[in-house]
Nucleic acid binder design. Structure first.
Lengths: 197, 197
DNA sequence: CACACTGTAGACGACTGGTCTAATCGTGTT
DNA sequence: AACACGATTAGACCAGTCGTCTACAGTGTG
């Protein structure tokens, strides 16, 4: 017998299970059945926790980004490093997690952005809002790097953050296509170049 | 009554119709019925021309890239411009076509890469091969720019081409998410920067 | 005319999709 | 012990999926 879990945990358990599956197969291509079967939750329960598949997708993204922001902020606040080093450590981590096979760490933005943006307005809105927050946090980090002198003062923090985020989004996409981390390595080189390092 | 069309045209007609629909809704989310109804072609014909939905997807990508390579090559061969100008004109065009509403011009790579890469090995292979050809053509263009002196000789053609392609892939993705061409404008600025213009 | 062949036509099968209603379960109160 | 009531679930539901299959139209050839 499975250990009994509190009600809120069922919800999170569905979300966690789904994240792994969906980050692999996408949103439309995955049925509720598959997710619920994997989670060991009966189909009837789904609509007790979520209003619809779309609402569920929204929650999935929200919970994913909640984690993401936390990790991101931790990395960009790490003491003992200057601004430039903190930024590079972030992208170094990106490279590593996205190269690894572990589906748990795969980026949902890369996987779902194109598919979901034309499919669900609410899900797109979550992606828009949350990725903007990521870029804003990166912008802050760039500004800090300029402040502490580890980055050239000639940089425009906003544009630089945007550019780098886009570069890495695209690099991840291309790595996905060719099944090789080389594009992300290339992106890391370019990142250092752009940051004047 | 519809005008009678030659047999080969039915095949292309299906492909053209599908491209518009799929570049909007994605691959998994679109059913054969929808495509065939829009094209005015019965289901029986579909399986006469294509072995399966997946095989069809492969052909769709191939035909898309056939056009793409042609346009790309035309743009990067245009006489009267130096290497740098030809490159910029390509990205200027990218910005315009992807900002426009016309679904006919939407980039299938941006739309399908993430979805398809984990869904169909054969479709992924087409994407891998064809995007590599695009990058190779860009690399050649960068090399020409260095040759004719319109680009700095310090550039590494291969890395630069890769980086720029990835940057634009990501910029398009982010523009899709936030429904605003601003990321691509930012990419254009960054492109000029990277090219030393 | 008879035949073969290419392509059209769409009904059909087996199955899966998301959704919802109606019943069951669990727990706390009387 | 009996009840009530919300939390949870089983399973029906139908629309839609891809793919198959048979029937047939049109054309060119012998």
């Amino acid at each position: 017998m499975e250990p009994k879990v509190a009600t809120q945990d069922v919800r999170s358990h569905i979300l966690e299970t789904a994240q792994v599956i969906i980050s692999g197969k996408g949103f439309s291509a995955v049925g509720l059945n598959q997710i619920l079967q994997a989670a060991g939750v009966p189909k009837g329960s789904f609509y007790h926790y979520f209003g619809s598949k779309e609402a569920f997708g929204e929650e999935l993204l929200k919970s994913y980004f909640a984690d993401y922001h936390e990790t991101l902020d931790a990395m960009l606040s790490r003491p003992g490093l200057n601004g430039a080093e903190r930024l590079i450590s972030y992208w170094q981590t990106w490279l590593e997690t996205q190269s690894a096979c572990d589906p748990k760490g795969k980026c949902l933005t890369v996987k779902l952005a194109a598919e979901v943006s034309d499919l669900s307005e609410t899900m797109r809105a979550v992606l828009a809002r949350e990725t903007s927050r990521v870029v804003a946090r990166l912008e802050q980090a760039v500004a800090e790097g300029i402040e502490d002198g580890s980055l050239p003062a000639t940089l425009n923090a906003k544009v630089t953050a945007s550019t780098l985020y886009q570069l890495w989004l695209g690099a991840s996409l291309r790595s996905k296509i060719i099944r090789d981390p080389e594009p992300m390595k290339c992106a890391l080189t370019a990142t250092k170049e752009i940051l004047g390092l």
